[in-house]
């Protein structure tokens, strides 16, 4: 350390004296220590000079201490305004983010169990609505997410349309178990009907083709025998 520079060139007694110097100035040495210190200083010019300087410095500081600096009139008000948003109207209020963590804040997961299920449900619903109103809403309404959602909606609507469900005609009653069963049966019947119809069409087509082929084969030999 820089404060111990030069100790090598001085006697060990001077190093001890220097260690005791602030306590000697402050009057904190015991009687024995004080007499040993005085004895050394009396015979050591360098230590005597250091003691005299330290005493003078302490005296100047005690003079300075006699009047403590007066803070500006508005300092306390500004401190309070900056921290708790206190009493100074013209002071700049601290932003919400700078408020301390120890500021009392009701925590939903701590307070909710005390209010029973109704309280929990209300808190949950509030959280969900808050979520939709703030961050999530901001994400959802970004153009790329909105376009994806629209495409998904159209493809679902198209699929439902093909299966015979008309979104425009949907009612709450359509979602009762019996209505859902009926819809499923209708879709099934429709699919079966389509399959049966297609089978009939294919059978007719196949029969026509066979007849056509038969005609062609009967014509060929007869023309050969002619």
């Amino acid at each position: 350390m820089s404060q111990f520079e030069g100790f090598e060139e001085r006697p060990a007694a001077c190093a001890v004296c220097e260690t005791m110097l602030p306590e000697a100035v402050d009057g904190l040495l015991s009687e024995g220590e004080q007499s040993a210190f005085d004895k050394h200083v009396a015979g050591c010019r360098e230590c005597a000079r250091e003691l005299a300087e330290a005493k003078r410095g302490a005296a100047w500081l005690s003079m300075l201490k006699s009047q403590s600096p007066e803070p500006p009139a508005g300092l306390l008000a500004r401190i309070l305004a900056e921290t708790t948003g206190g009493i100074q109207p013209d002071a700049v209020a601290a932003p919400a983010a700078s408020l301390p963590a120890w500021q009392p804040q009701p925590h939903p997961f701590v307070t909710a169990p005390q209010r029973g299920f109704a309280g929990q449900w209300a808190a949950l619903r509030k959280q969900c609505s808050d979520l939709l109103l703030t961050e999530s809403a901001r994400i959802i309404f970004q153009p790329r997410f909105a376009m994806t959602a629209a495409m998904a909606f159209f493809s679902i609507a198209l699929t439902l349309n093909l299966t015979g469900v008309r979104l425009r005609d949907l009612r709450a009653s359509n979602f009762t178990p019996s209505a859902l069963r009926r819809t499923a049966a209708n879709v099934d019947a429709s699919a079966t009907r389509m399959f049966q119809n297609n089978r009939a069409v294919y059978q007719v087509e196949s029969r026509l083709s066979e007849l056509h082929n038969d005609d062609a084969s009967n014509d060929a030999p007869s023309s050969g025998h002619r």
Binding site: L21, A54, G57
Partner: peptide
């Protein structure tokens, strides 16, 4: 604490030297 004591002594000494003329 030893460093503190040394700094106090040296600080007082430095101040006294700075104010020698004023004295």
């Amino acid at each position: 604490q030893g460093t503190v004591k040394s700094r106090i002594s040296r600080g007082r000494g430095e101040l006294a030297r700075l104010l020698k003329r004023l004295e």
